[in-house]
Structure formats: C-alpha cells, structure tokens
Design a protein around this nucleic acid. Sequence first.
DNA 1: ACCAAGACTGTGAGCGCTCACATTTATGCC
DNA 2: GGCATAAATGTGAGCGCTCACAGTCTTGGT
Lengths: 344, 344
Amino acid sequence: MTENKHVPPHSRSQRARPTMDDVAAVAGVSRGTVSRALNGGHNVSGPALEAVQRAIRKTGYVVNQHARSLVTQRSDSVAFILSEPQDRLFEDPNFNVLLRGCTRALGEHDITLLLTVAGTQEDRKRISRYVTAGHVDGALLVSDHAGSPLLEELKGRTLPVVTCGRPLGHEREISYVAADDRDGARQMVSYLRSRGHRTIATITGPLDTSGGVDRLAGYHDVLGEGDPRLVVSGDYTQASGEAAMEQLLRQAPDIDAVFVCSDLMAAGAIAVLRRVGKRVPDDVAVGGFDDSKVALASTPLLTTIRQPLGRISGEMVRLLLGHIAGEPPAAVILPTELVVRDSA
Amino acid sequence: MTENKHVPPHSRSQRARPTMDDVAAVAGVSRGTVSRALNGGHNVSGPALEAVQRAIRKTGYVVNQHARSLVTQRSDSVAFILSEPQDRLFEDPNFNVLLRGCTRALGEHDITLLLTVAGTQEDRKRISRYVTAGHVDGALLVSDHAGSPLLEELKGRTLPVVTCGRPLGHEREISYVAADDRDGARQMVSYLRSRGHRTIATITGPLDTSGGVDRLAGYHDVLGEGDPRLVVSGDYTQASGEAAMEQLLRQAPDIDAVFVCSDLMAAGAIAVLRRVGKRVPDDVAVGGFDDSKVALASTPLLTTIRQPLGRISGEMVRLLLGHIAGEPPAAVILPTELVVRDSA
DNA sequence: ACCAAGACTGTGAGCGCTCACATTTATGCC
DNA sequence: GGCATAAATGTGAGCGCTCACAGTCTTGGT
C-alpha cells in the first residue's frame, strides 16, 4: 500500500519557503515572539530578539506578504497609474519629475511605488482589477482624461485615489492636487500683453483635461472672448505643437505672440516658426508652460510658467497617505510662477 | 455591563468588503461553487453560474488577492526591474520598446507588469524586499551591471528571474535573453573594413555589462588587438557619446571610421564630428548599434545593427513563465542584423 | 515576605480564499 | 427500472501571518 499521508496539500514546485514557525523553532521561541521581533521588537527581550535574528539569517526567512496583508489589510505599496499611451511617459519630462518625486516621498514611509502604464483599454481593465483586488493600498492617477472609465471604476471601489490635476466632474468626491493652471495662464498672457503684443494666440492642451481647460480659461480671462481662429488645441506632444503652430500661421498670419500650454509643444512651435523664417521673440513671442528641462534646452531659452512639480508629488503622497489613514478627500492647489527668459 | 462580544477582532476603517461567503449567501449556493464560478466556471451549472454573477454584481464583490495568493502561491504579476538611474529610462528608447513588448506579451497571459525603478541603493533594497516577499511571481531584470547586489539577492531567493543581456558571472544559474552582440559587432566592423576604412575606432558601452564587453570582443575579433587609443568607453547616453568622440579625436585624429555601441551615443558622436567640421560619412564613417528610433532621426541616417527587441521581450516573457512553471534556467541568443543606411 | 505592577512570552482564533474529497443529483445504457 | 458514470455541489482543512488575551516571570515598595 502506498504511503500518502505526508503529501503536502498544496504541492509547490520549489522547496518550501521557511515560515515563521520554522524561525520560531530554530530560535527556540514562539511564533508570537518572532512576529513581535519582526514588527518593531516591542516587548521582546534582548536575547530573544537576537536569537530570532540569528534564526532568520540561518533559515533565510522572508515574510510572506500575502499572509500578512490578509490580516492587516495593508500591502504597503501604492500604484502610480499612467493613463496614457506609453510613449507619453517617455516623451514628457514632467512625468519623469513627478515619478521621481512620488517615489522618494513614498520611500520615506517605506512604501513601494508600482508604476503601471494603462495604454490600451485592455490594460486599463487589468489594472483596475489589479488595484481593486487589494494589491495596493491606494493609487496615484496621473493625466487622466475626463470620462475615463478607470476613474469611475476606482471611485466605486472605495480605493483611496489621488489624481494629479483636477478630475473633471469629480472634484467633490476625489482628492487631487493641481497647479494653479488658470492663474499661470493669466500671468503669461498678461505678461505677453504688457510687452506690447496685440495678437496673442494660444495652443491649448487636450480639452478633456483640467490643464487644457483651465489654461484656456486663464487666456480668456485676460483677453476676453477674442478671435476663435487664435485658439488651436494640441495634446502636449512636440509633434502636436508643430501641427498646431502651422494651423495657426495659416489661420492668422499676423499673430505676434503665442501662449503654448506645454514646453514640449512650445519647442515644436518654435521649430515651425524658425522653419518659416519668423524670429523668436522679435517677430513672434512664445510663452510655454511647465518649466521642464526642455525650456532650458530650447533656443532661445523659453519664457514659461513654473509648475512646482516637486511640491505636487509631495502633496499627492501626503494626501494619499492621509486618505489611506481614513481622512476625507481634499484638494490642494499650488501656485504657479512666471519665469522670464528669452523667448518672450 | 457592556456588550462586547460582537466587536470584530480586527476592526476595519472602511465598511467591510463583501467576501465570498456573502456572495454565496446571496446567490444561494456554497462558497465552493462561487470559487469555481470565479475560476473558469468548470463544473458549475448554468443557473448557479448566473446566480453567482448576479450576486457578485449586487454585492460589489471583488476577490481578495491576498487570500487567494496565500493559498495558490501565485500573484499573477511580475516585476520589470530597471536597475538604472531613473533618467536612463526616459532617455534610452530601447527601454521603451522592451517595456511595451513585455507588457503586451504578459498581457496575453493576463499577468500584470509592475515597473519598478531601482535608482538608488535604498530603492534596490526596498524592491528586493518587495519582490522576494511574494508580491510577484517573477522578475524581469533589465540592464543590470556586473556585481549588482540586486541580482545576488534575487538569486539566493529562488525567485524566477530573467535578465535582458548576459548576466556576467551568472550565466549558468540564471536565465537570460540577449542579442548576439559579439556577432553584431563583427558584422559592423567587417562592413566598415570592407568599405575601405583603415583606422576604425570604437566607443564601447559600460564594460560591466554584457553589451559592453561582447561588442568590444566582436570589434577585436575582426581587428585583432589593435591600438588601445582607438577604444574609448561610454555609458550608452548621448552625452557620453559626445565626450568619447572628443577624446577619440584628441587621441587619434586620423580615424576614418568609428563603431559606436549604441545609436544614442552615435548621435552624440555625429554631433561632435559635425561641430569640428568632419563630414559623415565622407571623412569619418559612423556605425551605430540598436536600430532604435534615433537611428532614423539622425542626419545622416544611421547605419546600425538591428537588435530584435520585439523578439527579445517575447522570449524574456516566455522564459520567465516557463521558469515560474518549474522549468530550469535557459538562455536565448537572438541574431543581430546589419542595417546599411547613410552614415557608413 | 507579600502582593501589585510591569515586562515578557505562548496560544488560539481567524483573515478570505482554494483545493481535495465526500456527497448528492442528473444522465446514459443495457 | 436498475446500475455505473459523470456532473454538480457542499464541506473542512489549511495557506502564513497578526492580534488579543492569558499566562509566567521579574521587580520593588511596604
């Protein structure tokens, strides 16, 4: 007859990982003491703590996060969800800065940041499932367009979420931190006008994002309704900036200034202006937005609006952690600042 | 006297999430049936399945991944670990392509990819802890330098790992997929020589990566030991390509061709050559490596070696999944191909 | 010497799920 | 109609941890 009583109920391919009980046995203490030693070491005697640490080293023990999370209901990680085609991540330097800031701020609380790129519809579904299944304690949502199914989904699940930029249509329910886009736009357009420019065009961001609509609103705040031919939309990429500038030149050849809602698009616009023989800023002044590193890489140096990206990421993390701890949603608006350089 | 027997043992801040038992109760079936309905629906009758789905919708049930993972020992996610300063991720287009390929390949198996950037030493420690704690089923390790503590750590933990590029010093123990760097280098250098160039220099990658040493080895395969002043190292960035080219020009002004081990560095080298008034390819021919999008953005169009990045990511995923399923480590070397354009 | 207060330790229950097995019910075949 | 077989269901154990609680062992004040 075959001996089968010792077959493990769930056979594993690898040799079994040591558990807390193994450590406890080696250390000659109980499971509870090992657990306490692992979690701050309060109420554990010196010798016991040492024995446990030795045993951990000897057995090569690593905590099983799933077991821990099952009882604590925490995973000590949050998702950084980029709801954009992946290329944007690599083209737009803002994401880079934001990501770095969030990683660092989270790191101070010993929380791991998981970057997920939700480019396709299918990705979005998988990620939504992933984060709502308890894998993460919260989510940082970046660059989400109005009407995105992702936000709807997350909102219904009581998962703490903080967005970067105003979540159009959900300002009341979910936390966000944003730069004061509208005021920044006002500053730039006022500056342009104060320098004597009369025909000021604008290349906006996508109008289903807060950055898009708010900066355009700031433009109109200063200039009134104005000529609709002076307003063209882009999607923040350099290529779209070029296309928009070309269209602007076709529609209104007499413009003497243009407020471009991202530095990257501004770089595209400047390239087009140079191509058609217009001097910047002499013939056409160009103002950007972001103060990213492309503002310093452009010739002439870009006059732009500084977004405090470092503070934004810090506030996003603070808000998210607060939210996870049970605080109600909140919004933070951070001031923007005009940086005058050579392009305007 | 106070009534306290019904206080939940672990009080939660949110209202409790529904569990499978709740769903089972609503659907009028048992927990087991709900579980089966969730996992493929085998051996579940039509009416039962429908009842379960209705109950799930009604209760808003979402599976608790930690509980599931605790028993299955699987998390259905893998980490994509970039062991580089974060900027590299944004500068080097190869990462972009690789990441997209892996995401897609993994997606076909319904596995989520988690991107982690291990820029600092501290990040590395946290990530190492994270992945070994069972959060992920395996790891894709990209651009890891020889002697990296991360690889050592992961290797000791029996976590399935696949690296991109030969893991110097660990070729036997851990899986990897790499392009045939050495042969690619041979192809390029042979081509350069066949076109009549006599003084062929090279700008290598970091010599603690397989790409660095193997491409240099290919160079020597064709040219023999050669003049050490014709060899300068970079770190794959454009800036390092410029610096290396300048040094080369100083050390050996008579070079008539240079094999640059990445397209990005080649772009830097071309910029320097143009700056000093040398024509490409007439005065100095330039060969790149990667066939990334910068090869097509450069003027003149870059003659380069194509790495099959799409296949590389596909093979990495295949190997990793095999590894997770219990297969032994394996290595895959993919052929490279000379792409002749205008720069050489 | 005695007892209260504190420090430390061990124990059992239970987090929410899956899986093997036992059990019930439906189906096919002679 | 009876029986083997398969399909569908329910049940209990257990994944590896944390947490509350109940003990045990020190102390020190009187």
